[in-house]
């Protein structure tokens, strides 16, 4: 009998403790995120819509048409169209299509990309009225310079080096950004490295923090070379970017 009363009192006590605990929660700020009004604060590693970044400083397209992402994609949702430029003999990106209806946001493409061009953005609002509308083309995929800068800083990605331009062709610059970085496939002749390039390479290890200065260092050389080899001397132009790239690679691993 007394055991029963004791148990009754004890259980009543615990019910009251529970009620009080719940009542205390009234004093807490609601954790609700009112999504359409306030966007969720997503971490940089969030795997949202895929996009192609441009260099946050020079706004040149980072894709080099190496097709690594296309090869690694489990869903085969990436479709790259590129051709070898008859002028420079390098791969030139014509179109880049990602079918987000197929994509499963595994992020493998972003891992294999050698230039950190393809990235997962924080955008997840892709709903549309047709499946075809989910196939994004190059224009839709490419981020602006500001967006790229935002994601590079948010994901803690090293700022890529600007590619030296072989010729002052501003119209073609965006269309064939592959120039410089496609070069490492060929064996770079180290003997062709000019003096200016060496000077740039010297300053390179410390240059990740100040790529602007780096760009300033490399630009004159590129322009000079371009002047030298207008049309015909393609071989001469190639080693020059390759030298720049050759120093960019160890640079990345060090940084």
């Amino acid at each position: 009998m007394f055991g029963l009363v004791g148990r009754a009192v004890e259980s009543l006590y615990y019910v009251c403790v529970g009620l009080w605990t719940v009542a205390k929660h009234t004093g807490r700020a609601p954790i609700t995120k009112e999504f359409p009004d306030t966007m969720p604060d997503l971490p940089g590693a969030f795997r949202g819509r895929l996009a192609l970044a441009v260099n946050p400083e020079t706004s040149e397209h980072l894709c080099i048409s190496c097709r690594q992402c296309e090869r690694v994609c489990p869903d085969k949702c990436i479709d790259i169209t590129a051709h070898k430029s008859p002028e420079t003999g390098k791969l030139e990106l014509i179109d880049f299509k990602i079918d987000h209806g197929l994509c499963m946001f595994c992020g493998l493409c972003t891992e294999v990309c050698p230039t950190t061009c393809i990235i997962n953005t924080n955008d997840f609002e892709m709903s549309d009225y047709s499946r075809e509308a989910l196939i994004y083309d190059l224009k839709k995929l490419t981020l602006t310079q500001d967006e790229s800068a935002h994601y590079f800083s948010k994901k803690y990605l090293p700022i890529p080096k600007p590619k030296p331009k072989p010729a002052p062709k501003p119209a073609a610059a965006a269309a064939k950004p592959a120039d410089g970085v496609a070069a490492p496939a060929k064996p770079a002749p180290p003997a062709a490295k000019p003096a200016e390039g060496a000077a740039a390479a010297k300053s390179a290890p410390a240059a990740t923090d100040k790529p602007a200065g780096d760009a300033a260092a490399t630009k004159p050389t590129a322009e000079k070379k371009a002047d030298d080899s207008k049309d015909s001397e393609k071989e001469k132009a190639a080693p020059e970017p390759s030298a720049a790239e050759g120093k960019a690679e160890p640079d990345k691993t060090e940084g």
Partner: peptide
């Protein structure tokens, strides 16, 4: 209920 469960 929303108040008690820290919602809106």
């Amino acid at each position: 209920l929303a108040l008690f469960t820290v919602r809106k």
